[in-house]
Design a protein around this nucleic acid. Structure first.
Lengths: 148, 148
DNA sequence: TATTGTTATACTCTATAACTATA
DNA sequence: TATAGTTATAGAGTATAACAATA
């Protein structure tokens, strides 16, 4: 690998480490683990079947049971029946859960602070380069550690 | 937050998720967890006191004990005495460990593939923008999930 | 006294497999 | 039969606190 590419890879590595770290810290400030915060962020957009949560988190459905259990124990989420299919359980954020998700999103703003060092033109360039690098696979993901 | 900044943040979120995922998959292909792979990458640069490993991983020293135990059980690392301070134990990669770290590094090349979509000039621009964004805190880190 | 590494403990996340209710 | 969710189980990472050896 050429030195230039290596530099970019290292920079991305630094970004990855920093964002994960800051996301977990922000979650912890709200008494949540990273996984719990990601599920809560997902649910803040609307109710979702347990299985779909697992797909978004790229983990086994059995794991989601425990994560939603813990959110439920904190009054941040609840399970609802799906009128269309009685096998399905819809996990949904409570009002408290939505509030917490919103506060978490706000507290993550400090993670975006680094971007303030760039001008609007530079941010536009950065966006375009990252989009091309990701090749059309850059859909927004509320459960992503760095997205809010 | 303005829409442009939000776009960049989302793109970075996508990158973070993708790189973590690919790093863990590459580690699993070598029968390692992500944490084990990171420690092994650290040790491949030379022996290191247990406590320093914890500092690099930003975790408690007690956790490092178990991770190095598992690397040792696979013959990838070993503990050595520090001649200068008998309290200190130096974790060191074995030859097998260094080989594995090198292969892991190579297998991570696919994670760098996205950068091939950019020209040299564009990669230079990307590097400069990321460096400014990170503000001088972009030192290379072999234990970073995306670095190798 | 302070520091290094370890052990003990408890919690969370993870995958796998078996189970239930429903389709 | 197939699918959705759960439970049971085991392994790994994590923090906290207490401990032995050494400085």
């Amino acid at each position: 690998m050429d030195p230039l590419t290596a530099e970019v890879v290292d920079l991305i590595g630094t970004i990855v480490a920093r964002y994960y770290q800051e996301y977990d810290a922000a979650a912890a400030a709200h008494r949540l683990t990273g996984a719990q915060a990601r599920v809560l962020a997902l649910l803040s957009t609307g109710p979702m079947p347990m299985r779909q949560i697992a797909q978004r988190l790229k983990c086994e459905p059995s794991n989601v049971t425990g994560i939603v259990d813990r959110l439920e124990a904190q009054g941040l989420a609840e399970r609802r029946a799906d009128p269309a299919d009685r096998r399905v359980k819809l996990a949904a954020a409570t009002e408290h859960g939505r509030d917490t998700a919103a506060r978490l999103r706000s507290s993550l703003d400090f993670a975006r602070e680094p971007l303030a060092a760039l001008s609007v033109g530079e941010r536009t360039t950065l966006r375009d380069l990252l989009e091309r690098m990701l090749g059309g696979d850059a859909a927004q993901d509320p459960a992503s550690p760095a997205a809010g």
